[in-house]
Amino acid sequence: MSNFRKSQNEAHPNKTNTILTGIILLQILFISMQIWLLFGALNNALEENFGFALTTFIGSLLMAIASIWLLRYLPEPLRKDSKNKPMVSPSRNP
């Protein structure tokens, strides 16, 4: 079985960092906008402005779907299991 991905991950640990940071920052951005929309919807719903409440709900829902969909791209954790490491036998490496 190819161990290309594993070697890549071990050779470039920063890549995992960047992806994770990007995902978390995007999620925080979405949540901040959702808080803003929710606050607006609460204020406007009290004023019988139903259209605004519905529009903010659709926007908030799209952002929730986006932030859950982003989880697909969470990198797998790097496992440090020494058992599966390829062993180099002394006979092959004279």
């Binding site: 929710l38 919807a41 709900f57 908030s60 929730a64």
Partner: peptide, 10 residues
């Protein structure tokens, strides 16, 4: 959860 609460308002 935020999307749900917005839906609750609607």
């Amino acid at each position: 959860a935020f999307a749900l609460s917005n839906g609750f308002i609607v």
